[in-house]
Design a protein around this nucleic acid. Structure first.
Length: 293
DNA sequence: ACTGTACCCTGTAGGC
DNA sequence: TGCCTACAGGGTACAG
């Protein structure tokens, strides 16, 4: 479900509810999500104050006063809901009020102002890890990530460096979180359309034979930034079930150029091509066969 | 090292 | 209505 813009939107809502507040109680309702919960997860969380809530790629990083860092990933169907009100100390004591099935509420945090933060995840591809904040750069799951798409390291030089000699196509290249971390199936299609690049073209097109960035790399880099920033501004995309921490839908899906628009006309002025659907690595890709090359 | 595929899990939409 | 299949925004573990 959530790609970088959705995770960033969730982060904003969670930060408002959590930063500077103390977690008074934690309830985990099953032993695992995608992975087992960390050892003594609830005990290490309860009583801690949240110092910051940041994002790395599609990961949420919750930094605690204890020096622990909680690393959270929403997988395909993970959702955080902030539920205001109530003063009970029992985490599970809250009134379910958001869309979704309460049977998949897997984690409940009780906050010192009486609010609840509930993690719901039907498919359970999401996960939560805990590590010492000092160790997070050494943790394999974060260490393997490529550059942040909205950060200063995402440059045409970097794209050329990573793409050089690669036979994998641009769809796979952008989906690979080791290259650039935060894009997913929706935004890769949208970015490639914006950059007028075919998803079928080999990633090697980003570098010339000397390893210098090509015109295609120069188009790709700002396209990533533009699409993501616009999507964040729109509160992300809601196809089916994505909601932010306040239960609100995103609106970026209303301005998709290609995603889920097979057969429709390309929105690029003067193009008029038809949006095609292809499958790369088992995932649908949408693109205009006329203006993307 | 790189690339492609199967798989994890549940819900939903569409065909019959 | 029910049953079946395909598919869904994620990442990982392999085999070649």
């Amino acid at each position: 479900m959530p790609e970088l813009p959705e995770v960033e939107t969730v982060r904003l809502g969670l930060a408002e509810a959590l930063v500077g507040r103390r977690i008074t109680g934690v309830e985990t309702r099953r032993p695992d999500l995608r992975f087992p919960f960390p050892e003594r997860f609830s005990e290490r969380l309860a009583g801690a104050t949240v110092q910051s809530l940041t994002r790395r790629a599609k990961y949420l990083l919750m930094s605690l006063s204890s020096g622990d860092l909680v690393v959270m990933h929403l997988g395909m169907s993970g959702r955080f809901s902030v539920i205001k009100g109530g003063v009970s100390a029992t985490p599970g004591d809250y009134v379910y009020q958001n869309p979704g099935d309460p049977a998949h509420d897997h984690v409940v945090l009780a906050i010192d102002d009486g609010a609840r933060v509930v993690y719901n995840d039907p498919r359970r591809f999401g996960f939560m890890l805990m590590m010492r904040a000092d160790d997070c750069d050494r943790h394999p799951i974060l260490r393997a990530l490529g550059v942040e798409p909205l950060g200063p390291e995402w440059t045409a030089d970097y794209a050329a460096l990573r793409g050089r000699g690669r036979k994998a196509n641009l769809k796979a290249f952008l989906m690979d979180q080791r290259n650039i971390a935060g894009l997913g199936n929706i935004y890769v299609s949208e970015v490639l359309h914006h950059a007028r690049l075919s998803p079928n073209r080999a990633a090697s097109c980003l570098a010339d034979r000397f390893g210098r960035p090509t015109a295609r790399a120069e188009r790709l880099v700002p396209a990533v930034r533009d699409v993501l920033l616009r999507a964040i501004e729109a509160g992300g995309s809601t196809l089916r079930d994505y909601r932010d921490a306040g239960g609100e839908r995103g609106s970026f899906q209303d301005t998709f150029a290609v995603y889920d628009r097979e057969g429709e006309r390309c929105v690029r002025p003067g193009c008029g091509g038809a949006v095609k659907r292809a499958v790369h690595g088992g995932r649908a890709t949408y693109y205009c066969g006329r203006c993307q090359s």
